[in-house]
């Protein structure tokens, strides 16, 4: 447990003149579940996208298990190693399943084409994953025939098929009807219990409270506060965190949607 699995080191991300991430540093240890909260536009989704290497960063570096994964385009130094890029799985708000493929084909595509896995092996693995997310009867169905919650669980299975060491969840329940949120959170909860390292951007405070090891509050491109959930929710150290949480609780009317 010496070296953190994820090291985000003074990362700067800009879109044109606008700074979206302003020298963000964060460490995540193996098996940790980190929930990132904050107002929209605070840079939390961008942070995940940078981790997934979907966005280049201008300054700083990102290490995965001690190996350089991304580095600032404005910084000197050796380029990151692009060969070992399958450590990270990501689940999106809009599911992004491949609509022309069945659930089974969605899950087996990357293992087969990227890892060169044989079809039979990839399917055996996919069946196991579908059982884990409770979709074993949907293997030959196209995504359009699934509910939002089922699509998102299929997307989780698809990400897991590449056996990532870190899973990123980017507001994965925000596009779901309220009654479907629970089934997705349950799947994520199960994943956390099995020891998966997770970074979760969410507005589900119930999930943060119960599952997170640490909660990170971001605002205007910077990390304002990081603390275990019981502390950040009961006695946040920063005024901005308190103001955000109060607004959030007001809006939700104190109800807890999950479970």
């Amino acid at each position: 447990m010496a070296e953190p699995l994820v090291v985000i080191d003074r990362v700067v991300k800009r879109y044109g003149a606008e700074t979206v991430l302003d020298r963000v540093s964060l460490e995540v240890r193996t098996g940790q579940v980190m929930v990132v909260i904050g107002p929209s536009g605070s840079g939390k989704s961008t942070l995940l996208r940078c981790l997934a290497r979907l966005e280049p960063i201008q300054k700083g570096r990102i290490l995965i298990d001690g190996v350089l994964s991304a580095k600032g385009t404005e910084d000197e130094g050796p380029a990151p190693d692009k060969t070992g890029g399958h450590d990270i799985g990501m689940v999106f708000q809009s599911f992004n399943l491949f609509p022309h493929l069945t659930v089974m084909e969605n899950i087996t595509l990357a293992p087969r084409r990227v890892r060169g896995m044989a079809a039979a092996e990839a399917e055996t693995q996919a069946i196991e994953l579908l059982r884990r997310v409770g979709l074993e009867d949907k293997r030959d169905v196209h995504p359009a025939r699934l509910s939002g919650g089922q699509q998102q669980r299929a997307a989780i299975a698809r990400a897991l098929a590449m056996r990532p060491r870190i899973m990123l969840f980017d507001e994965v329940t925000s596009a779901l009807d309220p009654e479907l949120v629970g089934e997705v959170l349950k799947t994520m909860r199960g994943l956390a219990e099995q020891g998966m390292t997770m970074l979760v951007v969410t507005h589900e405070m119930g999930f943060a409270r119960d599952v997170a090891d640490d909660v990170v509050f971001m605002d205007r491109g910077a990390i304002v506060e990081r603390a275990p959930p019981d502390r950040i929710f009961s006695q946040p150290a920063e005024a901005r965190t308190r103001a955000f949480l109060e607004r959030l609780l007001e809006r939700e009317g104190g109800t807890r949607r999950e479970r």
Binding site: R49, A52, R53, L54, G85, H86, I88, G89, M90, F92, S94, F95, N96, L97, F98, L109, A110, R113, V114, A155, R158, A159, M162
Partner: peptide, 14 residues
Amino acid sequence: PRGQWDASQVLGLA
């Protein structure tokens, strides 16, 4: 949609 590129990129597809 852009998300199709994103999803397949994170999965490691060239």
